[in-house]
Write a protein that binds this DNA or RNA. Structure first.
Length: 504
RNA sequence: GGCCCGUUCGUCUAGGGGUUAGGACGUUAGAUUUUCAUUCUAGAAACAGGGGUUCGAUUCCCCUACGGGCUACCA
């Protein structure tokens, strides 16, 4: 009955993928999955001057890491290709010409220099119904002259001819009725001098040809919506027009405006999904992945930025998101990004996942520090330390002492607790521990406490020094558990070594 | 400037004509943890302003203010 749900994400491959883009992808993906529809990836590379080497592949990598895999599109196959607009160049021209023939568009011969002069001369110059009769276009140049200009190959564009006084309105799935007066909208270029379409033409033609049912895009596209709607009408595709949903923007945490790459650098958090290095400038921007986020956490936090399910639930699996997502519950206003809350989501996800699920990530983190260990050993440790990790790299800081002995000791922590008689205690502890054959945390604790009371030293006075000897500082899980896990030999060696170091 | 969109604790948000305006992050204070983290308890913290409509508006309408977006042969 209803037509098949087909949604698309249509990035232009010009640089790193912003989390705002990731959220748009996520909403597209959730909507498609919820409705048994298709999620399509289309590359909008109509601006050849902004082409960036590697950007398309990078986007694919981001999609893969986020787990938001397209069903169709560039790199994923499908029957509506090609999915790269630069490869569809010849498709658009005929539609632009059709619009001219119908009187809804016209040729314009003004050069970029002409336009720039115009803008300099007249503040807020707009190429629109008020000014187009003063310009060089097919409405001011005689028909024959236009023909010969075109035949001669004079550079020209095709502009939409905005109607005089119409009200263009549509129902936005998030905002409700939105309307524009065509009097206020300028004559946007549809086809550029190089024969490539602009976004405005390409998006309409491709959405039609690819049978897109819903368009989810950022709020920054709202002002150009009337151009697109008119194009759908003029091209005679009225009945197939997709439903529109303009998503609220992600704003800077401080100041004003939408979140940008620069804000990330300035405030110390990633803005891109994955690390990105601009091939031209070699400028680097860090990604969520490399900062130590779980993809589940990124998706979760982005979903909750502007959407909620009306309950107090905040942690959602992808399946829950697919089941519960609804456009009606997307907030209208922009949301300032909150880095603290973002980290909280990641910490929650680290706690939520099992050691088994965390294993590959932790292995990766440790491998970067040249630590390689057996899976079972790793899993034991992950369960012990995961609740004190916020970002994945924290696994190293919280667990390195399980793999290597401390190189330095927190002397400040030790000093206040140290005395000669405690040194003696630990000397004796070595020989007592040495006699234990069944190396078990509980037994160790008993032996430790008995020796302490025999020497009339408060256990509390000894715990911290013991901890520092084993891990180097005052952190980490239960200390006897650590002793148990690193084993008898390591425990004894570390006590002995620490004793020696402290003496100096 | 013009046009469009928006506005509940510092931040993300729930709510919706009559509520002690709820939750989360952060923050403060405690408890637990012989370290830290986790966990738990408690606290401070919001309906931008002005007009309507109404018996009653945070909720509906209008205006103002403020915020955001757009205003390219960029997307």
């Amino acid at each position: 009955m209803d037509k098949e749900v087909r949604v698309r994400f249509a990035p232009s491959p010009t640089g790193g993928l912003h989390i705002g883009g990731v959220r748009t992808i996520l909403f597209n993906y959730l909507f498609a999955k919820q409705n048994n529809g298709k999620f399509i990836l289309r590359i909008e590379d109509t601006d050849q001057s902004r082409f960036v080497q590697g950007a398309e592949e990078y986007i694919l990598n981001c999609l893969e890491w986020c787990g938001l895999t397209p069903d169709e599109g560039q790199g994923f196959g499908g029957n509506f290709g090609p999915y790269r607009q630069s490869e569809r160049k010849n498709i658009y021209i005929k539609y632009a010409q059709q619009l001219v023939a119908q009187g809804h568009a016209y040729y314009a011969f003004d050069t970029p220099v002409d336009l720039e002069n115009k803008r300099n001369a007249i503040p807020n110059f707009q190429y629109n119904q008020a000014t187009r009769l003063q310009m060089r276009n097919s409405m001011t140049i005689p028909h024959e002259a236009v023909q010969s200009l075109i035949n001669e190959g004079a550079p020209h564009v095709i502009r939409i001819k905005m109607p005089e006084n119409e009200n263009v309105y549509f129902n936005d799935l998030i905002r409700g009725d939105v309307s524009f007066d065509t009097h206020q909208v300028d004559d946007k270029v549809l086809l550029k001098a190089d024969g490539m379409p602009t976004y405005h033409l390409a998006v309409v033609v491709d959405d039609y040809l690819m049978k897109i049912s819903h368009v989810f895009r950022g709020e920054e596209w709202l002002p150009s919506a009337p151009v697109h709607i008119l194009l759908w009408k003029y091209l005679g595709w009225d009945n197939d027009m997709p439903k529109w949903a303009h998503l609220p923007l992600i704003l800077k945490p401080d100041g004003k405006g939408k979140l940008s790459k620069r804000d990330g650098e300035r405030l110390g958090f990633p803005v891109f999904a994955l690390d990105w290095t601009d091939p031209k400038t070699q400028e680097k921007a860090t990604g969520y992945k490399e900062t130590g986020f779980l993809p589940q956490a990124l998706n979760n936090l982005l979903a909750l930025l502007g959407w909620n399910d009306s309950t107090e639930q905040e942690i959602f699996t992808m399946q829950e998101l697919v089941d519960k997502f609804s456009l009606e519950r997307v907030h209208k206003g922009g949301a300032k990004f909150d880095w603290d809350k973002a980290k909280w989501f990641n910490a929650e996800w680290i706690k939520k996942l099992s050691a088994e699920e965390l294993l590959p990530y932790v292995k990766d983190v440790l491998a970067n520090k040249n630590i390689n260990a057996k899976d079972d050993y790793l899993k034991t440790i992950i369960d012990l330390v995961k609740e004190r990790c916020v970002l994945l790299p924290d696994f190293y800081a919280q667990s390195h002492f399980f793999f290597t002995e401390p190189k330095t000791y927190d002397m400040d922590a030790l000093k206040s607790k140290w005395s000669d008689e405690k040194g003696l205690f630990f000397n004796d502890l070595i020989s007592q521990f040495n006699q234990i054959n069944n190396w078990d945390g509980v037994d160790l604790e008993n032996v430790f406490k008995e020796l302490a009371s025999a020497k009339a030293i408060k256990v509390g006075e000894l715990m911290l020094p013991f901890r520092v000897m084993l891990v180097g500082g005052k952190f980490g899980p239960q200390v006897f558990l650590i002793a148990e896990i690193i084993g008898k030999q390591q425990t004894l060696a570390r006590i002995a070594k620490a004793l020696e170091t402290i003496k100096l």
